[in-house]
Amino acid sequence: MMGQPLEKFCRCLPCMPDSAPIITFDHVDKFYGDFHALKDISISVREGERMVVCGPSGSGKSTLIRCINGLEFHNSGVLTVDGVEVFEASKHIYRLRQEVGMVFQQFNLFPHLTVLENLTIGPIKVRKVSPPEAERTARKYLERVRIPEQADKYPSALSGGQQQRVAIARSLCMESRIMLFDEPTSALDPEMINEVLDVMVELADTGMTMVVVTHEMGFARKVADTMVFMDAGEIVETAPPDVFFTNPASARCRAFLDQILDHG
């Protein structure tokens, strides 16, 4: 892990040409029946890059990140994650998913397991880590998301913000190298959004590769290296945040930003 000042310095750079791409979409198309969900997507995410994807609902942002860990499969084109090509028949798909953590809008914690068990079941059953070691890791990450005292409770006893932080810790426990966030704060009460965003900002500071679908533009401005705007299944605009927010090239993107930043 690099020192804090250097991290901060790296974050100021709009892109990091020195690190290699870890996620690459090459002319990827995705259909749901007749519906064209992703249209000729070509984009790449470098290791350590933090990409924020925004766009109106139904624009394909969720589909885009769900393709990255194979929750959905694209129909044509090449999608490579961490050097492995993602497709349904791939033998490496389970291996790959261990490297890619995902945080969902609805948290999706396992309600029949305690918080601690939620965090250890993946490492124990999938990664074959020994239970004591898995528990040690779990407690470390609970500390990191600032809810070590909730370890033995069931998810239903936690607030939405706490549940989402547990979900983030669950992904971290898999020691993933890439983290995907699918609208992580959309289902939260307003007063809990910041506690989750704070954890995500800290995570960004550790140099984790992150792809975040969100409408939280304050967060995006703070952590994003790259902003992506999607509409109707296409990537309309890709730009560093300072350009994206002040001077977007496309009219569609400008209209979208006007709408969501109105009340900002």
């Binding site: 291996r95 953590g101 995902m102 999706n108 993946g122």
Partner: peptide, 24 residues
């Protein structure tokens, strides 16, 4: 969402059934 969560931490279909879906 339980399937998706189980899948996203790398569980196979059998593991997801055994540890996540059937107990619930």
């Amino acid at each position: 969402g339980q399937w998706e969560a189980a899948t996203s931490i790398g569980m196979s279909k059998g593991q997801a059934y055994r540890y996540i879906i059937l107990p619930q």
